[in-house]
Design a protein around this nucleic acid. Structure first.
Length: 433
RNA sequence: GCCCGGGUGGUGUAGUGGCCCAUCAUACAACCCUGUCACGGUUGUGACGCGGGUUCAAAUCCCGCCUCGGGCGCCA
């Protein structure tokens, strides 16, 4: 296949072999068109029945949609062809036949439900708008990595098989590790913290996290991709600055490098890079403003978690990304540092108007306070000794956050369901493919 | 974990007790058509998630199961 030409590169006057999938065949009688699709686009192949060898015409027109073929021929300029050029075939090689009945329609004439699409993801991904989501996801990860490097971070990879959970509370997937009890890690939290005390100081990780919660919503996955950041000698304000920079870098990367993909999604005109300087609202201010919207039957009081309905009402009012800061200590995990007033924590969330994207904060780096925190949350510090003991050997002040990659893709592209942002999602019922 | 709402040809749908051996689109098959670009036209193929019940009569009502989607809680 070294001589294969992409459809997008086929220029008039060239003698080429194009290879790809049969998108459609339109037989008008004396003339017929085969639309051939590859990753770069589509090209029309013309069959004039009177002027061509019968077996060539027969091979071409007997094909089923989505069969894979290689067509050799001359590229001609033709105003009446959809792309302005068409291939006049000299030979056709059928490389892989497709069954006549497809489990979904890659040409997009008939919709398929998400579950049908996920069951047949390969075919689903032959649609340009579905491909676009994953091209954009890839570009997002690329620009995020670049921004982290600009921030002076080292990329790390931490274990996903662990002996104990991170924070307690969240359900973990148990597994057997050579006869011992083990779990799939819910977050790289503790490991990335250990790295700020190492010579690396500032790190990031992009990797899977596993949550065994039996939720069934369009914004939760049981296996998700977490974009994690942690830095020594940072406080929560520094961490928020880094967070904002990374989110904006992701949008910028896509605005700069994914115009075709945005076009395929019908977003070329509407896509906007958010303005820097995301508002930073205190938890107290947030509950007041949510109460003022009147969206909730019962007003929120200090110490409540923010209900989904309240988050949405406030998000609509604010209309852009915003941070929620100064959360009550009691509803943040033990590793988040308290402020001087120990009712308040340094924890923050980054919200998109639709939903939460990031959770972060300054961390408790004082050994004794950390141990107290474990005990207050009913966790046994002994189980986490691999973690706590490093706080006895010079753990600097530090801060960081975790960002849901799929949630970022979802909110950026306005996807209705987070499963659209994962090739092969794992949710309450789906374990295959 | 608690609570709602669905499952009809390959795909997406219409159909709330008899007018339904089930509508429409797409697909597939055959025929017609020399510039389609969601090509068009004619004819045909193909389905009520599973099990039980109510009824003279069930896609439609009831029960159980399976399965899918959603809401809440929690969270990324």
């Amino acid at each position: 296949m070294e001589s294969r030409t992409y459809t997008a590169d086929a220029a008039p006057g060239d003698s080429v072999t194009v290879a790809g999938w049969v998108h459609e065949i339109r037989d008008l009688g004396g003339i017929a068109f085969l639309i051939l699709r590859d990753t770069t686009g589509k090209i029309q192949v013309k069959f004039e029945k009177d002027g061509m060898a019968d077996d060539l015409v027969e091979t071409g027109l007997d094909l089923h949609r989505e069969s894979v073929v290689a067509v050799g021929g001359d590229v001609e300029e033709e105003d009446r062809a959809p792309t302005g050029v068409e291939v006049v075939p000299e030979n056709i090689e059928v490389l892989a036949e497709a069954d006549p009945e497809l489990p979904l329609d890659p040409s997009g004439k008939v919709d398929a439900e998400l579950s049908t699409r996920l069951d047949n993801r390969t075919l689903d991904l032959r649609k340009a708008e579905v491909q676009a989501v994953f091209e954009i996801r890839a570009e997002l990860l690329r620009s995020v990595r670049e921004q982290f490097r600009d921030l002076g971070c080292t990329e790390i990879n931490t274990p996903k098989i662990v002996a104990t959970g991170t924070e307690g509370g969240t359900e973990l997937f148990p597994i057997t590790y050579f006869g011992r009890e083990a779990f799939m890690n819910q977050s790289p939290q503790l490991f990335k913290q250990l790295m700020v005390g190492s010579g690396l100081e500032r790190v990031f990780e992009i990797g899977p996290i596993f949550r065994a919660e039996e939720h069934n919503t369009p914004r939760h996955l049981n296996e998700a991709t977490s974009i994690d950041f942690e830095s020594a000698f940072y406080d929560e304000h520094d961490a928020m600055d880094a967070c904002e920079a990374v989110v904006i870098a992701a949008y910028e990367g896509i605005a700069e490098n994914c115009q075709d993909e945005l076009e395929a999604l019908g977003m070329a005109d509407s896509f906007e890079v958010p303005d820097a300087g995301f508002p930073r609202l205190s938890y107290e201010e947030v509950i007041e403003r949510i109460n003022a919207t009147g969206a909730l039957d019962e007003p929120l009081v200090w110490g409540d978690d923010l209900p989904t309905e309240g988050e949405r009402a406030l998000g609509e009012e604010i209309g852009e990304h915003y941070f929620i800061t100064e959360w009550p200590s009691e509803i943040k995990p033990f590793y988040i540092m308290d402020k001087e007033d120990d009712e308040l924590s340094t924890g923050f969330d980054l919200m998109h108007p639709r939903l939460e994207l990031v959770s972060g904060g300054q961390r408790e780096h004082r050994h004794d306070r950390l141990i107290e925190g474990f005990e207050q949350q009913g966790l046994e510090p002994e189980a986490f000794e691999y973690y706590t003991k490093m706080f006895r050997y010079g753990m600097p002040p530090h801060a960081g956050w975790g960002l849901g990659a799929e949630r970022l893709v979802m909110t950026m592209l306005g996807l209705d369901n987070i499963r659209e942002a994962v090739l092969f999602p794992r949710d309450r019922q789906r374990l295959s493919p």
